[in-house]
C-alpha cells in the first residue's frame, strides 16, 4: 500500500517560507547557503590534491636522482596538506559529522570529484612531469582567483596553497623546458607525454551547474575563465621546450561528475585498504 501523506504535521518549510514572505524581510542566505554545490566544489579542489599527491608519492624511493626524490616528496606533502584543508572545509560545511579523513577514506570512486588528468598513471618520469606542469598551470590560476573568494575560509586556504603551487609550477615548467630542449631521447619522451596527456586538459575548463552556482555566489571563478591564462603559460613553456601540443585532439571528461577512468578504483583500493578492512579502528 502506498504511504499516505501525514495529514497532521504541517509542512514546516512551506510555513516558514510563508512567514518570511509575510514579514516583509528580505531573505538573507545562511552563512553556508548553497551547500551542496559548495561541498561539491570543495571536494573537487581537495580530491585533485589528494589523488595527485598520491600519484606523486608513488615515486618516493624510485626517482631518477636523490635531489629529485626529495623535491617530489615536498610536492606530495604540499598536496596532501592542501587536501586536508579543502576536504576539512568540505566536511564542515556539509555538517554531517564527517571529517577530511572520512571523505578521503570512506567514499567510493563515484563520489570522487577529481579531474581525470591527476589519476592517470605515473608512466615514465616525463609523463609525471608533464602531468604536473599541465595541472600546476591550471591550479595556480584557480588559486589566484580563489584568493578573492567571497568566502574568507576559501580565500585563506587559497592564499596558503598559492605560495606552494607557485613553486610547483616554477619547477615543473622549468623541467619541461630543460627536458624538451635536452637530448633527442628526452625531447621524444616529453613530446610523447604531452601528446598522451593533452586529451585530459580540456576537462579543467568545462563549466557546469556547480561552477555556475559558485560563480554566482562569488565563491569561485568559472573554470572557463581560467583557460586563456593557462593557454598563455602553456604555450610559452612548450615553445621554449620545442614541443608542440596536438591540435584538435579529442577531450575526455567525467571526473568532475564522478565518472572516472579505471585507474581511480585501484588508487582507492590501495589508499583505503586499512580503513575498509578494520572499520572504526583508530590509527
Amino acid at each position: 500500500m502506498p504511504s499516505l501523506p501525514d495529514m497532521t504535521t504541517p509542512n514546516l518549510t512551506a510555513l516558514a517560507g510563508q512567514a518570511l514572505a509575510d514579514s516583509g524581510h528580505v531573505a538573507v542566505p545562511a552563512p553556508d547557503a548553497g551547500q551542496p554545490e559548495f561541498v561539491e566544489f570543495l571536494q573537487r579542489m581537495g580530491d585533485n590534491c589528494l589523488i595527485l599527491g598520491h600519484r606523486v608519492s608513488e615515486w618516493c624511493g624510485h626517482a631518477p636522482a636523490l635531489e629529485e626524490d626529495i623535491a617530489l616528496a615536498n610536492q606530495a606533502l604540499d598536496l596532501i596538506g592542501q587536501c586536508q584543508l579543502w576536504l576539512g572545509l568540505a566536511a564542515d560545511i556539509e555538517g554531517k559529522g564527517r571529517d577530511a579523513d572520512a571523505l578521503a577514506y570512506l567514499r567510493d570512486a563515484g563520489a570522487f570529484r577529481n579531474l581525470l588528468l591527476v589519476e592517470l598513471p605515473n608512466g615514465d618520469f616525463g609523463v609525471t612531469l608533464m602531468r604536473q606542469f599541465l595541472f600546476d598551470a591550471f591550479h595556480i590560476e584557480m588559486l589566484r582567483a580563489l584568493k578573492a573568494s567571497s568566502d574568507p575560509r576559501v580565500a585563506e586556504i587559497a592564499a596558503k596553497a598559492e605560495k606552494e603551487v607557485a613553486y610547483h609550477l616554477e619547477r615543473s615548467a622549468d623541467l619541461v623546458i630543460r627536458l624538451g630542449d635536452g637530448t633527442d631521447e628526452s625531447r621524444a619522451r616529453m613530446q610523447a607525454a604531452l601528446t598522451k596527456l593533452w586529451s585530459y586538459t580540456g576537462e579543467m575548463f568545462l563549466d557546469d551547474a556547480v561552477d555556475q552556482a559558485m560563480s554566482d555566489a562569488r565563491i569561485a571563478p568559472l573554470p572557463s575563465s581560467l583557460q586563456a591564462a593557462w593557454e598563455k603559460t602553456v604555450a610559452a613553456v612548450l615553445d621554449e621546450a620545442t614541443l608542440a601540443a596536438p591540435t584538435g585532439a579529442w577531450q575526455h571528461k567525467g571526473g568532475k561528475k564522478g565518472i572516472h577512468t579505471e585507474h581511480l578504483g585501484y588508487i582507492l583500493a590501495e589508499m583505503q585498504f586499512l580503513q575498509r578492512a578494520y572499520p572504526g579502528a583508530k590509527w
Binding site: 598520491h54 608519492s57 618516493c60 624511493g61 626529495i70 616528496a73 606533502l77 596538506g81 585498504f273 580503513q275
Partner: peptide, 29 residues
C-alpha cells in the same frame, strides 16, 4: 626508503601519510 615507502600509499589517515612521507623523504636526504 623502500620498506617504509611501501606503505605511503596505504597509510590509514592523511596525517599518518604525511608523517610517513616526511620520514622517508628524510632518509633520502
Amino acid at each position: 626508503q623502500l620498506p617504509e615507502g611501501n606503505w605511503i600509499t596505504r597509510a590509514p589517515t592523511l596525517e599518518r601519510k604525511a608523517i610517513l612521507l616526511a620520514k622517508v623523504q628524510d632518509e633520502a636526504g
